Amino acid sequence: MSRLELAAERLAKALAALEEAAEPLVKARESAAAAEARIAHLDSERDELVARVAALEEDARSLTGLTEEVEGRLDGAIAEIRAALGR
């Protein structure tokens, strides 16, 4: 074998070893990209849920006020009925 053939063989082996060593890195990069996409999706979903919770909290406050108003009116109506009945 000539020196050139030996050098080509060593180069081929080195390239094969490099490709083998780089394979986990390629997989890790792909995994990281998928994780970043998932994180972005989860961030978006979290923002939507936070907005929904805020809207539900506002609805709850409105309903609380409405409930208090209805309670006051019912108490007043009951008092009027009792007064009319002479109690």
Rank of each mutant, 00 (worst) to 15 (best):
S2W: 02
S2A: 08
L4V: 09
L4C: 09
E5R: 14
L6A: 14
L6G: 05
A7K: 06
A7Y: 15
A8V: 08
A8G: 03
A8N: 10
E9A: 08
E9H: 13
R10N: 10
R10E: 02
A12E: 14
K13N: 13
K13H: 15
K13R: 12
K13D: 10
A14R: 03
A14V: 00
L15D: 10
L15F: 01
L15C: 11
A17T: 02
A17K: 11
L18E: 10
L18S: 14
E19H: 12
E20P: 00
A21L: 13
A22G: 03
E23M: 11
P24E: 03
P24M: 00
L25W: 07
L25T: 03
V26F: 09
R29K: 08
E30K: 07
S31I: 04
S31Y: 01
A32W: 06
A34K: 14
A34C: 04
A34N: 06
A35C: 12
A35V: 06
A35D: 05
E36V: 07
A37C: 02
R38T: 03
R38E: 03
I39A: 01
I39P: 00
A40N: 00
D43P: 05
D43K: 06
S44F: 10
S44I: 01
S44N: 09
E45C: 02
R46A: 09
R46P: 05
R46L: 12
D47I: 01
D47S: 10
E48A: 07
E48Y: 05
E48H: 11
V50R: 03
V50F: 12
V50H: 00
V50Q: 12
A51S: 14
R52E: 10
R52A: 14
V53F: 08
A54V: 11
A55R: 15
L56Y: 13
L56I: 07
E57K: 10
E58M: 07
D59E: 15
R61Y: 01
L63V: 12
T64S: 13
G65I: 01
T67S: 13
T67N: 06
E68K: 03
E68H: 07
E68T: 04
E69T: 10
V70H: 03
V70N: 05
V70G: 06
V70Y: 02
E71T: 13
E71L: 12
R73D: 02
L74E: 05
L74A: 13
G76E: 09
G76M: 10
A77V: 07
A77C: 08
A79L: 15
A79E: 11
E80S: 13
E80L: 03
E80A: 09
E80Y: 04
I81Q: 15
I81K: 11
I81M: 11
R82A: 14
R82S: 14
L85C: 11
L85E: 06
L85Y: 11
R87D: 04
